[in-house]
């Protein structure tokens, strides 16, 4: 009853009239409400990063196409031609690229996210806003790259006259899981990076290492059955398998127990990432 009353009073008064209390450990009270209020800042920071990224580049957005395309070519040659790995009848470039897409999304989002706080250090120490805005807006930028390189996939499908099945409509779901994975790891890295700058060296290593232990250049079906569950401890395995399942249709099978394990790991990472970020964020301005 009292709760309801308080709520009503707050609504009736003008938004600026609401009393703000600042106390040690008190900041979280209107945190999520604040995030909503600062959604425009979120939008502007993402907009800034996208603008800046392609300013003063001669071919601009084409960079987002060239990098994944060349990587795809190399992987196709190395894994498909030289190593002769199986592709279950799918054109090897499409097999590679359907995994390149989520991997690229994950790796750029992770790097952007973990560097975002340091890159915006001057903002953190001079202006108040919910700090969560910074890493999340950084992730949006990599999503734009992801959307652009999606064009390559479409082009490849046209080239090989490859028609996807109905499963393609589930792609957004897997994209969200990929984003959640990068946010989860990214938030941990971002907050740790503020505290210990060592983590700035760990992230590139993680990204490079992850490319080889994730099924990007090959299908995860080549992993022996009894190791599949263990292999799924890598959260990106579930995401990539999901992408292949959605894009390649019947030719790709998915190992559901592994997928469930990967996805729950992703969720665990995301929730713990947010928890740790929230815990550390109060001191960001003091240590950064």
């Amino acid at each position: 009853m009292t709760k309801l009353k308080i709520k009503r009073r707050r609504e009736s008064s003008a938004p600026g009239e609401a009393e703000l209390i600042i106390e040690a450990g008190r900041t979280e009270k209107n945190y999520w409400q604040d995030i909503w209020r600062y959604r425009e800042l979120f939008y502007f920071l993402a907009w800034r990063d996208i603008l800046v990224r392609y300013k003063q580049t001669a071919i601009g957005v084409a960079w987002a196409l060239i990098r994944p395309f060349l990587t795809m070519v190399v992987f196709t040659v190395v894994f498909g031609r030289l190593a002769n790995l199986p592709s279950n009848g799918v054109p090897y470039p499409i097999l590679v690229f359907s995994a390149m897409l989520p991997w690229q999304l994950f790796s750029t989002a992770l790097s952007e996210c973990s560097n975002s706080l340091i890159a915006n250090a001057n903002l953190l120490s001079k202006v108040y806003f919910p700090r969560l805005v910074v890493p999340t807006s950084a992730v949006v930028v990599s999503f734009v790259d992801f959307a652009i390189s999606g064009i390559i996939l479409v082009a490849l499908m046209v080239w090989f006259t490859y028609v996807p099945s109905w499963r393609i409509v589930t792609l957004p779901l897997f994209t969200i899981i990929a984003l959640a994975a990068s946010m989860g790891v990214g938030l941990w890295m971002a907050s740790l990076n503020v505290q210990y700058r060592d983590f700035r060296y760990i992230v590139p290593f993680l990204v490079q290492f992850g490319l080889y232990i994730s099924p990007v250049g090959f299908s995860s079906s080549i992993v022996p059955e009894r190791w599949r569950l263990l292999y799924s401890l890598n959260p990106m395995v579930g995401v990539i398998d999901g992408f292949r399942w959605a894009i390649l249709g019947n030719e790709a099978s998915i190992y559901w127990p592994g997928f469930a394990l990967s996805t729950s790991l992703v969720m665990l990472l995301l929730v713990s990432g947010i928890w740790y970020f929230r815990k550390m964020e109060r001191t960001f301005a003091d240590v950064i």
Binding site: L20, I21, I22, E23, V127, R282
Partner: peptide, 14 residues
């Protein structure tokens, strides 16, 4: 301006 948190004490702002 809420950039950093106080260690002790209380502020109320309207």
């Amino acid at each position: 301006s809420r950039i950093t948190e106080p260690t002790r004490g209380h502020i109320s702002i309207k």
